[in-house]
């Protein structure tokens, strides 16, 4: 049984329209996404901004209520639980946020930020609580005396370490990492990625790793899902996806990765996408990629392609695969 099993997940955000605030339109941020994550693996989720990858992560962590669909964590459906019922799952499912500047309360010391998580779940008090804070801070590479400092006194990389300590201190088994490195400098990114990998090995953690940096996602993930306008268009093992991408969107996305090697960069050919991502408001019922797809034919504007397994463990949604 997979640790996390998401079926037909939908998350629509209403847009207020009209004089009396009648709700006319919806932003279909997540539109029918199904995926499962095995224990101990890292599932990468990539796509352009606005494709719904963050919303998937936040809905799985139940920071949003799903509009439709089920989220099974370890066999239990958590998709419609109340806040009270969710408390034990909040300890198991943690989140690391993109922006280490806005995700830490500026008026709390680092010790309080990390300690708050311990208090909420009633894990320890007094001496033991202090000891836990000390040990988690040291395992993310911070010192004892950092506990009495405030977030603004730290650099971006250090703040991200605090965010990781806060997530890890309650001993979760599943962590949603929402662009944890994109706000950091290149030399610091590798430090954080290595640390996440070490913790995964040490504590047997499972990650959902959301990012737009395709080379880093490939590096850290076991499998990767590619999203476009709220839907998954392709899902495969990370080497498989980079070696034999099947969906035309994945192909062009991968060809757009800048390669840090002048000769390879000169030899690589780009599949240019025309135009930009269309608006996610009232997306068409047929293939959402049709307006930019270099291979689109008439059927693409009529039927939605099915997200199906085209090779062992390799899923894609396109009529011509």
């Amino acid at each position: 049984m997979p640790l996390l099993d998401v079926r037909n997940l939908k998350k629509y955000f209403p847009l207020k329209r009209g004089l009396f605030g009648s709700r006319a339109n919806f932003v279909k941020a997540v539109d029918d996404v199904s995926l499962s994550i095995e224990r101990g693996e890292t599932l990468g989720l990539v796509g352009e901004s606005g494709c719904g990858k963050t919303t998937v992560g936040r809905t799985i962590a139940r920071l949003y209520d799903p509009s439709e669909g089920s989220i099974r964590y370890d066999g239990t459906d958590i998709s419609h639980m109340t806040q009270r019922e969710l408390v034990p799952f909040r300890r198991k499912i943690q989140m690391i946020f993109q922006d280490p500047f806005s995700s830490l309360d500026p008026r709390m010391t680092v010790g309080d930020i990390v300690g708050e998580a311990i208090d909420i779940h009633g894990l320890a008090t007094g001496q033991e609580r202090a000891e836990r804070i000390r040990s988690i801070l040291s395992s993310v590479g911070l010192s004892d005396w950092h506990a009495n400092r405030y977030p603004h006194e730290f650099s971006g990389g250090q703040r991200q370490r605090i965010g990781i300590a806060r997530a890890l201190v309650v001993e979760p088994s599943f962590i949603v990492c929402d662009e944890p490195i994109s706000a950091l400098d290149v030399s610091i990114q590798a430090q954080i990625v290595n640390m996440l990998e070490d913790f995964q090995e040490k504590f047997g953690l499972t990650y959902l790793f959301i990012a737009h940096d395709l080379s880093m996602v490939k590096h850290i993930s076991t499998r990767i899902g590619v999203m476009y306008l709220g839907s998954l268009v392709e899902l495969a093992g990370s080497n498989d996806l980079y070696e034999t991408p099947l969906h035309p969107y994945t192909k062009s996305l991968l060809s757009a990765i800048p390669i840090p090697d002048p000769i390879e960069a000169a030899n690589s050919r780009r599949i240019m996408l025309e135009g930009e991502v269309p608006s996610p408001i009232d997306t068409p019922p047929w293939c959402k990629f049709v307006s930019r797809c270099p291979q689109a034919r008439s059927i693409c504007g009529e039927d939605p392609p099915e997200f199906r397994e085209v090779a062992s463990g390799h899923f894609a949604a396109c009529h011509f695969i």
Partner: peptide, 19 residues
Amino acid sequence: SVPNPKKMMKERLVPIKGV
């Protein structure tokens, strides 16, 4: 410290220590 997406084998990244 940047992974090359063309490499098939996973290699551990070598970060620059410190700040």
